[in-house]
Design a protein around this nucleic acid. Structure first.
Lengths: 112, 112
DNA sequence: CACTTAATTAAGTGTATGCTAAATTAATAA
DNA sequence: TTATTAATTTAGCATACACTTAATTAAGTG
């Protein structure tokens, strides 16, 4: 699922769609009106986002309202954070180690 | 550049490569040895990651050592955070609003 | 029922992309 | 210089995917 979610946010158009619906539900056609592509194209993007667990549909008559799915969003964010936080932690440690070495080297050369 | 970075981490194999090099520099062949694909395939992935500003190369003789590029990583992380943090903030607000409504409705029905 | 509205599914197209084997570059060693 | 090692670039292939138009489904409405 997490792979699907990452795959889903790959496509710039789908990130745009997520930005559109994150403030509240929108119908497929309302979303489509923001773009220069056909309604089916948007419908296909919405399907991908839904299968990735990032949006949910609420049916009301002939309309379908799309909105953010919190759990999916949270899961994706957690993955991202664990990925980058771990990396940054290690980079921070590496940077500090580097600085230590630098200081050692300097103190050997300095004679004040 | 940020679009290229997102595009770059789309591919699962490239995320795996990033995981491999985030603890320290590795040569192209050392990276390739972890996977079932050919060396050229890895080389091409590394090129994508380099052009996205996520890794850097250090040449030493015939070898090329690949490592994480901090600035690129930080930039990508910032973008991700701003995307998701904004979203989560709005979702949190929406949830609180929802709860308020729920409470109002309950207090009208309750007669204790 | 026929008609409208909202949206999706289906079929087909062009392009991007991940992969391979073969050729090429680059640095070093004999 | 010739050979070796490390890696990349090239050319070609197969698949994935974003898009289009046309057809179809689904829910109301006259």
């Amino acid at each position: 699922m997490i792979d699907k979610a990452i795959q889903a946010i790959t496509e710039p158009r789908r990130r745009d769609i997520l930005h559109l619906v994150r403030d509240g539900e929108l119908t497929s056609s309302a979303i489509a009106s923001h773009f220069d592509v056909s309604a089916p194209a948007i419908s296909q993007h919405l399907k991908v986002l839904e299968e990735a667990g990032l949006v949910v549909v609420r049916r009301a008559g002939t309309k379908r309202f799309y909105g953010i799915r919190r759990e999916g969003f949270a899961e994706l964010m957690q993955y991202m954070e664990s990925f980058w936080d771990d990396s940054l932690l290690r980079l921070k440690e590496a940077a500090e180690e580097e600085e230590r070495k630098q200081n050692d080297a300097n103190s050997k050369h300095r004679h004040d």
